[in-house]
Design a protein around this nucleic acid. Structure first.
Lengths: 142, 142
DNA sequence: CTCAAGGGGTTTAAAATGTCAAGTAGTGTG
DNA sequence: CACACTACTTGACATTTTAAACCCCTTGAG
């Protein structure tokens, strides 16, 4: 990240974080509930394990997501569960804004490549500015 | 772009567009006024001509920005001027959301690399925790 | 005229980054 | 036992981004 000093500001940095590949996708997937590794990989669709692992680590370091290894639920299986931190959950507003913009401006206009198929089984009817209470079950902290 | 079909939606596509390197920076710079090429490069800070040219072309194709060659203003100099289209201007909401989030969560916390030095060349008067004013975020004026 | 400076790019190879196919290790199922 | 599932790791490979140089063109100063 080589942001030159004279133009620095929190927003600049925020963009630097959010513009990294898959980050927004991961956050979006996590906004709809906590997920395991492979589950996340499937939802994000197109990201491989290596990249996903890397992104997940970065996001954890940044305090956007947290990883919990719930070693109790299924006995001894070490299933990792990723969830958003408070900071991460507040990205809902960003996702909503992107979502709204996307629907308004490239809903059925695949100038590039791909045709829209249907609403993505997630944040439909997401009016901007809802109270950030996804009501996710808090799980074992790591 | 390899978006797998089962999860596709406008938002997914929007993320795909906005997550490309420099795109958000470019939009942010352009939200504060129309810019020439080198001017834009300086504002964005860190992007080189090659990449900038490429991004600018992509964004133009996507209908987010438009390029005008005003051959009149300075006589015969072919100065290119980039500006946002309507669709592009509506990204204001996204930028605002990112901006607000950045101020709230990584204002002075460079866990990664870089120390915050000052307000970015213009967005002072940044009242922390302000309501996401949909009007105009004060950025660098022209 | 010549030189430096600014605007608007393009071209190059190299570095950074992302991706893929496998493989590892533990568990649970048929 | 063989195979599918979990969560990763590894090393080769592909793509993207980068700096630096170079190109053209205009203006202003000396």
């Amino acid at each position: 990240m080589n942001h030159h000093p004279t133009t620095f500001c929190p927003a600049y940095r925020a963009i630097g974080v959010l513009q990294e590949k898959w980050v927004l996708h991961i956050v979006r997937a996590l906004l709809s509930g906590n997920r395991g590794f492979n589950e996340l990989a499937r939802m994000v669709g197109g990201c491989n394990s290596a990249t996903l692992t890397q992104r997940l680590e970065q996001l954890e370091t940044l305090g956007i997501i947290s990883k919990a290894t719930d070693a109790e639920v299924t006995g001894k299986l070490a299933r990792s569960i990723y969830s958003l931190t408070t900071a991460g959950r507040e990205l809902q507003g960003v996702i909503d804004a992107i979502d709204a913009w996307g629907r308004a401006h490239l809903a059925e206009d695949p100038a590039g490549d791909l045709a829209a198929v249907d609403g993505c089984g997630g944040s439909e009817a997401a009016p901007v500015a809802d109270s950030p209470d996804p009501g996710v079950t808090p799980l074992t902290r790591v």
